[in-house]
């Protein structure tokens, strides 16, 4: 009963925030930020002229601070879960709070993996869970207010915005055209093709490793299937070409992994900034987009993980094994 009385009170907060947002939108006109596909450079000069001797110049781009922040957050999260579970183990073995939530989620994922992978669940589950948690943090971090909107000013190459003094060394963009563009301090790491591509490479190499562990050298017959050419002339040749197609699809996996995550997150970023610039005063619309992006972020993290899991399961089940089952 007590709780039911308290509920309507929170709705008025939302309404008050809407009205405040409307008037703030009048005072500080929303500006459409510069949208770039590559992460912006915080410092124009490279940190290392030739990184590691062969990799070319290394710039301090604005996804690097976010990467550090994400890793710190994940470590803190792991520490909090560990402490919560230890505390429950010392008292009555009933997990509470953050430990309970994490256990529920991981249990669902574990059961899903066990259903698909069978005896390989202990090998595949860590990949699935690690990738999912990492991508989940990366996707949700980009929704924190202040990301993409606070940063250093650079002189624009083309069209920029005018600025006005806020306090001290801090400036605010105005609606007029000017000569400055913003390089934000933080940009969500999944809005960087380098991050998604690296993760896709790790996932696909992991798939091959699991395949080799499950089938040994027999895994290679998936790609180089010459065995049947002499036994059954027509179907053997078809099998050989299927093997080549498998090899191509292995490389296509990298691209599709990378572009699926990057595309979804980049589209979300553009959607939020465009809607914020157009309808910033009516703040419920950008808030709705934010909610949608929350949903997309969770779904995409799950999709990245589950695809890795499914491909790994496919890699553990060999060609011959399948025939033996029939």
């Amino acid at each position: 009963m007590e709780q039911e009385k308290r509920r309507p009170w929170r709705r008025w907060v939302v309404l008050a925030l809407l009205i405040v947002g409307f008037y703030l939108g009048e005072l500080f006109v929303p500006v459409q930020p510069e949208i770039t596909v590559a992460p912006e450079k915080l410092i124009e000069e490279p940190i290392f002229e030739n990184f590691l001797g062969f990799a070319g110049p290394l710039y301090l781009v604005n996804t690097m601070p976010t990467l550090i922040l994400t890793v710190i957050l994940i470590v803190l999260f792991a520490y909090a879960v560990n402490r919560s579970l230890k505390k429950s183990a010392q008292t009555d073995f009933v997990p509470r709070g953050i430990g309970n939530v994490t256990e529920t989620i991981l249990e669902v994922i574990y059961n899903m993996t066990e259903g698909a992978a069978g005896k390989w669940v202990k090998t595949i589950f860590p990949w699935f869970a690690t990738i999912m948690i990492y991508v989940l943090f990366a996707n949700l971090m980009k929704l924190i207010p202040g990301f993409e909107s606070i940063g250093v000013l650079h002189h624009a190459q083309g069209e920029g915005h005018a600025r006005e003094l806020l306090v001290g060394n801090w400036y605010l963009f105005t609606a007029e055209k000017g000569e400055y563009i913003l390089a934000p301090f933080f940009r969500g790491i999944s809005v960087d093709l380098n991050f998604t591509f690296t993760l896709a490479l790790i996932a696909v190499i992991g798939i091959q490793v699991v395949g080799f562990r499950a089938q040994g050298m027999g895994y290679l017959t998936k790609f180089l299937n010459f065995g049947g050419v002499f036994k059954k002339p027509v179907f053997g040749v078809i099998d050989m070409f299927m093997g080549i197609l498998e090899l191509i699809s292995e490389f296509a996996k990298i691209l599709s992994f990378a572009f699926r995550l990057f595309g979804n997150m980049f589209a979300g970023m553009v959607l939020i900034s465009v809607f914020g610039a157009l309808l910033g005063k009516i703040s419920i619309v950008p808030a709705g987009i934010y909610l949608f992006e929350l949903f997309i972020g969770i779904i995409q993290a799950f999709v990245f993980g589950i695809l890795t899991m499914v491909f790994m399961v496919m890699a553990t089940q060999g060609h011959g094994e399948e025939h033996a089952k029939h």
Binding site: I35, N264, F266, A267, V303
Partner: peptide
């Protein structure tokens, strides 16, 4: 899950069109 997969195709198109629009 299935919708997320089909939507990814539209997202590829969106990325290509963004790449064109923003002169990458």
């Amino acid at each position: 899950l299935g919708i997320a997969f089909s939507e990814a195709i539209a997202i590829y198109c969106l990325v290509i069109s963004f790449l064109m629009l923003f002169k990458v």
